[in-house]
Computed example of a mutant assay.
Amino acid sequence: MTNAPLTVLVVGATGSIGRLVVAESIARGHTTRALVRDAGTARHRLPAEAQLAVGDVTRPETLPQALAGVDAVVLTLGSHGGAHSSPENVDYAGVRNVLAALSGQRPRIVLMTAIGVTARGSAYDHLLDWKRRSERLVRASGLPYTIVRPGWFDMNAPDERRPVFLQGDTRRSGSPSDGVIAREDIAQVLVQALTAPEAVTRTFELVAEHGPAPRDLGPLFAALEQDAPGALDAVRDEDNMPLSQEPQRVRDDLDAVRALAGA
């Protein structure tokens, strides 16, 4: 795992995971830029060492300046309901808008989605389907990426701190029985993925089991299978979301991202 410091942009920086990612990134020596909608409000919620970049993922024109010169982007987007903050506008289009605003830059991308993201016909389809589509955009981008699908936040016991990486997204009950993980541990995995060469082109579910957290996640990343080149879905994922049945606007977005990758 390389220790070279990076310039990192955290998108979703004031959220419950994003704030911890900012702090973890700073602690690891990275120059850390937080994308925020309101600098005055955010300053009280983030470490003093964080650089603030004012922007909004639902307003594409605000993103190029925030992305200028970055080596890596961590996306921890989460919608909160309503027309402005719907899963389509934030969890999906927010990722699309960030990718489109890179203007030829090729940063490392780390995207957080959710365990069970490939489930169909569940009560969470309105969220999970858009998160899965955001994953497809990242894979289509041609950028070096890692996609992390954490379990249920902070429902772990105090001694459940040993991270376990899974693939195939087979735990899809939509309940904590799928797996639990501390928010702090999610942030550590997201940030360590930025500098672990073994993490590139890997997609995995993240849960915790009994035991302590290891200092080096490199062996866990290395044990994962890589996503197939050119594939829209992760290795071992069920093929249950045919592209031919996707909304035309989603297929158009994939074509646009692929075109940017080939530019």
Rank of each mutant, 00 (worst) to 15 (best):
L111K: 00
P107N: 02
R45T: 12
G230H: 11
D227P: 04
G168D: 12
V250K: 03
G40F: 08
A39F: 06
V98H: 01
L77A: 00
A199C: 08
N97M: 05
I109K: 01
M155Q: 15
G230N: 11
L9G: 03
T14F: 03
I109N: 00
T113E: 06
A93K: 13
P64H: 11
R106E: 00
R172E: 11
R215L: 14
A196R: 12
L243D: 06
G94E: 01
A83W: 14
P87I: 04
A234S: 14
M1P: 13
G78C: 14
S244K: 12
T146M: 07
M155A: 10
I181A: 09
G82M: 10
A140T: 08
A27V: 04
P247E: 14
T32E: 08
A213C: 14
A228F: 02
P107V: 04
L220M: 12
P214D: 04
A157W: 08
V8Q: 12
L254F: 01
L67N: 05
T58S: 13
H44E: 15
P47F: 06
A27G: 10
R120C: 10
K131A: 09
D185N: 15
T201E: 14
G81K: 11
D56H: 10
R171F: 11
D233H: 06
D252E: 15
E198P: 03
R19F: 05
D91T: 03
D125F: 03
G82K: 11
A231L: 04
S175M: 12
L77R: 00
A39W: 08
S141T: 00
H30P: 01
G151V: 10
R37C: 03
L102D: 01
P158I: 10
V36K: 02
R43W: 04
R108Q: 05
I17M: 07
A259Q: 10
H84T: 15
G262S: 10
A140S: 15
D233G: 11
Q245M: 14
G174C: 11
S16W: 04
R132T: 07
S244M: 14
H84V: 15
V189W: 07
A140P: 08
D216K: 05
L128A: 10
G18M: 07
L254W: 07
A231M: 06
I26T: 07
E88S: 06
V11D: 04
G142V: 00
P247Y: 13
A101I: 08
A157G: 09
S177E: 15
R202E: 01
A100Y: 00
V90F: 07
V138D: 00
V57L: 05
T201L: 03
R172W: 04
A231N: 03
E238V: 09
A72H: 05
H84Y: 13
P107W: 00
P150W: 05
F165Q: 08
I115C: 09
V164G: 02
A193R: 02
W130I: 02
A140L: 08
T76H: 09
H84W: 08
S103W: 02
R43D: 05
P219W: 06
L232N: 04
Y124T: 09
I181S: 12
V8P: 10
E135F: 08
I186D: 08
L260F: 11
A196D: 15
A93P: 04
V138R: 01
V10H: 13
D125E: 15
T146V: 10
P60T: 11
T203C: 04
A196M: 11
L52T: 05
P64F: 11
L63A: 03
G12C: 05
A228W: 02
G168S: 12
L206I: 10
D227I: 09
G78N: 06
R106V: 00
